[in-house]
Amino acid sequence: MKHIEVGAMRVARENGFLTVKAALTNTSAKNKSIYYRFAWLGDDGFPVAPEESWKSLTLYGTQTSYLPAIAPVPQATDFRLEVQTPENSVNLFR
């Protein structure tokens, strides 16, 4: 995935729900469109909720954006961030 970098991820449990903020940076000078979604996993490493719908985001040239996410159920203890761009795609694991 050219020009899109995944940076720091902050994970916390707030009011019983896992919350995540993940930094995504566009390293090119051009605006980039990306698609992303989170998968929420339980203690056993398997999904605790149905697949999320994909979301679309525009990153302006050299911009860093923080994707916010809240787990759908309190049972979620881990997550995966799935990112795609219109040109190419890769799965990222945390």
Binding site: N15, F17, Y35, E52, S53, W54, S56, I70, P72
Partner: peptide
Amino acid sequence: TKAIELVTNEFGSTDLQSIAESMARSLAQ
């Protein structure tokens, strides 16, 4: 069913899903 729907400009399935998801999670949390 989870794909980003860009068939036309009108209110669509992706809008419905993203609204429901962000509202329900924001309220629950």
